[in-house]
Design a protein around this nucleic acid. Structure first.
Lengths: 115, 115
DNA sequence: CAGTAATATTCCTATGGGTGCATATTGGAT
DNA sequence: ATCCAATATGCACCCATAGGAATATTACTG
């Protein structure tokens, strides 16, 4: 699970998956579509393969890559208990309350001026 | 989206969310439950807050943190087109075929042995 | 104001990841 | 064997990040 998130955090890898969602593709195709170097694509494919997100088969010199859904199913399963939160009306209530006492505290802390 | 994946890739942060799923909690509670140092928890909470995954409100010296579902909904939306893949029977067919010509190629390449 | 509890931030260091460039490997054709 | 096309790997560099230890900040109490 940890690895799945790490792997999916890279934008080019998600783009690769987006392409493979349409079907099997050779590396060269992905290189063209992503507009990044061939070694970079190959490395991302390796990462994806080791995470089980894609698999490959050989066609002469080419390698055809295709999607594997299993890790994505696990991700979906991880999400499930959270999904229940916003699918219940409970969440709407909480969001309503949150709107009322809005106390975000982003920005950095500043020292008291003049002292 | 990218940031959401990065943030969720950290195990302690996912554990924090798992706890907050049950409801609002002060930092000290999270420190106890996770068994990691207080500064570490505070840093993770900051990361989570900046990613919109949690929000906080003050209760005297304490800060109560609670979950925000919005980024998780986005994650869920990202998953949607992929979910369609395994929800259609098409995927079962593909997996069936994949079982037949199984040519994973993980491990490093080895030179041909002997002549 | 002094003291204390709860939490946040800073500094430092070690580590992992992405990319470019060069090169190795694989498979097919001649 | 040689040459070419397609893809994979190795190496160096830089940037981001997690964690520990120390310290700062905030809020309450007397």
């Amino acid at each position: 699970m940890e690895r799945v998130f790490e792997v999916l955090s890279e934008p080019n890898r998600r783009r690769i998956l987006d392409v493979l969602r349409r079907g099997e593709r050779p590396v060269g195709d992905l290189v063209d579509r992503l507009g990044v170097s061939q070694p970079t694509v190959s490395k991302h494919l390796r990462t994806l393969r080791e995470a089980g997100l894609v698999e490959s088969r050989s066609d002469a010199q080419r390698r055809l890559y295709r999607l594997r859904t299993e890790p994505l199913r696990e991700l979906d399963a991880w999400l499930e208990p959270y999904r229940m939160l916003w699918e219940s009306r409970l969440d709407d209530l909480e969001r309503h309350l949150a709107t009322m006492d809005d106390d975000r505290d982003d920005g950095p802390r500043r020292p008291p001026e003049g002292g």
